[in-house]
Design a protein around this nucleic acid. Sequence first.
DNA 1: TGCACCCGAATGAACGTTCAATAGAGGCAA
DNA 2: TTGCCTCTATTGAACGTTCATTCGGGTGCA
Lengths: 190, 190
Amino acid sequence: MENLAEKKKAILESTLQLIKENGFHGTPMSLVAKTANVAAGTIYHYFDSKDTLIMELFSYCQYRMQAAVEQHLRQDMDFQESFFLRWISRCQFYIQNPEVAFFIEQFVNSPFYPRCSQAQSERPQNEIMQFIEAGNRHGILREMDPKLMAIMIHSSIMTAAKAHLDGKVQLRNEEFKQLAQMVWDSIRKL
Amino acid sequence: MENLAEKKKAILESTLQLIKENGFHGTPMSLVAKTANVAAGTIYHYFDSKDTLIMELFSYCQYRMQAAVEQHLRQDMDFQESFFLRWISRCQFYIQNPEVAFFIEQFVNSPFYPRCSQAQSERPQNEIMQFIEAGNRHGILREMDPKLMAIMIHSSIMTAAKAHLDGKVQLRNEEFKQLAQMVWDSIRKL
DNA sequence: TGCACCCGAATGAACGTTCAATAGAGGCAA
DNA sequence: TTGCCTCTATTGAACGTTCATTCGGGTGCA
């Protein structure tokens, strides 16, 4: 993933950017080609079709997200601290990479999403779920289906980031902490 | 809104259904026409373009949602009870009307959404916000930007409903209460 | 007669995809 | 070294399809 062919990467990045600006319909392959400084035919050298381009873009985004979050992790933290750090760093990743946030949200609400493997589609929630199961073993968390809990947490992250990106609210350090606290209180045993 | 022309309503409902199944791209006007038992030209008697059809569909969905939720409201409840009832009945509305849920989620993550008026786009959150402000006056809720809180609540409702509709979890009475409780604990003063 | 409603074939633009042609890189024999 | 072959990467014009939209015409009611 790190060393994709120059052009292939340019195609992925251009598509990402264009989809953020114009949505799926609004980004014809011809425009992708122009933006990536590539001929139309070249795209089809790397991708079978527009559909597979978009599917691969989803993997690519998940990869970028994963890599970004891992950087922040540290060992010497208790469970709650670790939760705060994870919640906030994920949220900040989306804010710093709006193209990724917009693309993912569009993707998961499109007919593409049901078509990709479950393993693939649940990857971002899986890491959260492992974390929850660790918490459960310590008896810190509420009794609740871990999968459901993971989904709710993931959604709280995306929602906060999107609200910020849409300019509906402005999130600063204070608000990040408030939000993480809010979500924390919703999952922990009271 | 109640007494739309027969055909106009058929067009809206068909579009809603088709978009749920095939997404925006996947529902050509010709198919809408066929499904609604109407000629292609007829659609353009009621709507200027596909875009305005979709925009109106958004209003139409908001209207249906509003109407459904109002039915459940009662007066003789304290704030917390009222919150639970609202949260659960909204969530159930989306579950019972999957076309609406899928359409709204697709819509708000498409380039259409930024193009519609703020008044329009924030309508569903507004009612929640009034409710929050009432809670604030009684000092029941956490200190937090009410707008942000409203967004987070609304998203929790949609997320739960979608998780159920996607078959990722199965929500029964027990789970609805759990979820409402979880969200309640995240917004109330502890 | 006019107006609202409705029809569906026709139109033309937009778009995804293909393909024949070209350039360059590497290998290999003479 | 030179000439030749092959394989990959790249190009962009051309193709065929799909689709939103138009338009000329039809029906029935005021």
